[in-house]
Simulated scan of single mutants.
Amino acid sequence: MTPARDDARRDARRISASMIDPRVIDPRQELVRHDDLSEEELAQVVRLMAAMRAWRDADQRLSFASRAHLKLNETDMKALRYIIASMNADVPVTAGALSDHLHISTASTTKLLDRLERAGHVVRRPHPTDRRAVTVEITPETHREVRRTMGLQHARRFELVRSLSPADRETVTRFLEDLSATTLTTAAAAADDDPAPAAPAH
């Protein structure tokens, strides 16, 4: 490899690593003011944002690997996790409840359950009290696999959160709630900025 290519790769890695640094992505401070922070404070903010990105990327990789292993899409996995939680709470899972949880239509839920049943992930059984309805249960094999992947990861996260002091938990909780609020606000603003659909031509 030539020195020029080495330099180009180093530059590419440097830019990739600094894409959350406002000094790089907003040097004229048109969106983010940062000249009121010391270099140490700014470095700390960037480090926290880098840690947030690393966590998000790691979580996405785990979710993708778990879904790929079971040959599931994201909605399938959400459905299985809901079924597991309901079964643990001794609450029968109906197609209607699953449809409400996933925010999808009844027809889409039926297709989803057909797909999961064909793959051996769920079984349908008669409802214990309503003869017109059926319930959905996860198969033991799939339950074990989901627990081995997502369940184990959730347990590790729980232990990490439990290790924090009560004051630190409150601080982290408020931070994450505020962070979620910024995402929701941004999504709402983007929707408001979308142009209205054109009126159909007559």
Rank of each mutant, 00 (worst) to 15 (best):
S18R: 14
I15D: 12
A4C: 13
H121S: 13
E74Q: 06
T110W: 03
K78A: 04
R157S: 06
H127E: 10
M87F: 01
P166C: 06
T173R: 02
A8V: 05
I138N: 07
E39C: 04
H103P: 01
A187V: 15
Q44D: 15
V161C: 00
T186M: 12
A85E: 07
R61T: 11
A198P: 01
A107Y: 00
R9K: 13
P140S: 10
D57E: 08
R157K: 09
L31C: 05
S165A: 11
D193T: 03
A155V: 07
V146G: 06
D36Y: 08
H121Q: 15
T183R: 15
R147S: 02
G151E: 02
S165E: 12
A65E: 09
M150Q: 02
I84H: 09
A50F: 04
T2F: 14
P195S: 01
L98A: 14
L176T: 11
T75D: 03
R118L: 08
D193N: 12
D90S: 00
P126F: 06
D57Q: 06
V134Y: 05
A51S: 05
G120R: 03
M1F: 14
S18E: 15
A12V: 10
T171I: 14
A119S: 12
R14T: 04
Q44N: 12
D26H: 08
R157D: 07
A196L: 12
A8T: 13
T75H: 08
A196G: 00
H101V: 00
D114L: 05
D59Q: 09
A68P: 01
P126R: 11
D194T: 11
A187C: 08
S180F: 07
V24L: 10
R124W: 06
A196Y: 13
L31I: 05
W55S: 09
S165Q: 13
P3Y: 06
H154W: 04
V136N: 06
V123W: 08
K111H: 06
F64T: 15
K71P: 03
V123S: 00
V24D: 00
A155E: 00
S108K: 08
E39Y: 09
S86N: 07
I20Y: 10
A58E: 00
S38C: 08
A8E: 09
P126E: 04
V24M: 05
D114P: 01
V146F: 05
V146R: 02
A17I: 05
A199K: 13
T171H: 09
H101L: 00
A189D: 06
G120M: 00
I84E: 02
V24F: 13
H154V: 01
R33Y: 12
R47E: 02
Q44W: 05
D76A: 08
V93D: 07
P126Q: 05
S108V: 07
A43C: 04
A189M: 14
V136Q: 10
A54R: 10
R13D: 05
E74S: 02
R61D: 13
I25R: 11
H202D: 12
T135M: 10
R47K: 08
R124I: 09
R10P: 06
L48R: 11
